[in-house]
Amino acid sequence: MADDYIVETKNLTKEFKGFVAVSDVNLKVKRHTIHALIGPNGAGKTTCFNLITKFLPLSRGTILLNGRDITNTAPADIAQLGMVRSFQISAVFGHLTALENVRVALQRKLGTSFHFWKSDTSLAELNDRAEQLLEDVGVLEYRDIPAGELSYGRKRALEIATTLALEPEMLLLDEPMAGMGTEDVARTAELIRRVSKDRTILMVEHNLSVVADLSDTITVLKLGKVLAEGPYSEISQNPEVIEAYMGHGVGSHA
C-alpha cells in the first residue's frame, strides 16, 4: 500500500511570522505518474516545493520519501536519496560549458569532488555519459558553449539533462515551461513525457493546457490549502476550482 506512493506529506505546514503559506497539505504522489500542482499566485505551490526538498524548514508536519521520514534531512542529502528538484528560474551554471554542467552532476559519484590536487582531466571518463545526456535532450551541439549563453529553452533542456544525470527516481520541476514560447513549450512537454518513464514527476505549472495533457493527477492549491485533487477531467469540472483558479478561462485553455 505504502509502496504505491513515492512521496507523502502529512499535515505539511509553513508559517511565516503569522502568515500561513502552506497549511495542512496532505499530498500523495503516486509512483511513476506525473503529478501537477496548480493554483493561483500565492497559493503556496513553490513553498510546498521548497518544503518537500527541504530548502525551507517546515513549521509542522512530516514528509515521507519511499516510506522513509525525511522531515529532518539536509537538502543536499535529499538528492542522494533519489529526489532532485529544478528551479523556477532556469538553474544552470552559467560560466561552465553545457558539458561541464552535466558533468558536475555526474562527478559526485566518482568520489573525487574534494580532490583539489587532481587535474580536472580526470573527469574525462564522464564525458561519454554527459554527451549522451546532452544528446537525449537535444543540446549536444552546444556542449562547449557556456551555459549562460544558451537560449532559455535550451537552458531548461540542459537543466533537465543535469537533473537526469543523477538518475533520480523522483523529479520536482518548478514551472518548467514558465516564460517559454509555444515551440519550446511543446518541446519541453515532450521531453518531460519522455523522461517520466520509470520516474515520478511532481511539477508546478501555470500553463493549463500543458498540465491537462501531461499529468495524471492534479492537485489544486488555494491559499495554502488543497482545494481539489484528481485527474484533469474531474478537476476542470469542479465548481470551486473553476471559481478559484480557472475562472472563465477553462474552455479556451483546454
Binding site: T53, F55, A74, P75, A76, D77, I78, A79, Q80, V84, R85, S86, F87, A91, V92, F93, G94, H95, L96, E100, R103, V104, A105, Q107, R108, L110, T112, S113, F114, H115, F116, W117, K118, S119, D120, S122, L123, G148, T162, L166
Partner: peptide, 29 residues
Amino acid sequence: YRVVNSPFGQVLKAIRDNEPRAISLGYQV
C-alpha cells in the same frame, strides 16, 4: 591553478554560479 582546474574546482565554480542548484544536486556546499 590546479585547485581551480580540479574536480573540486568544478564544484566551486558550480557553487559560485548557482548555489541552490549545487545543493539540489547533492553537494554539501
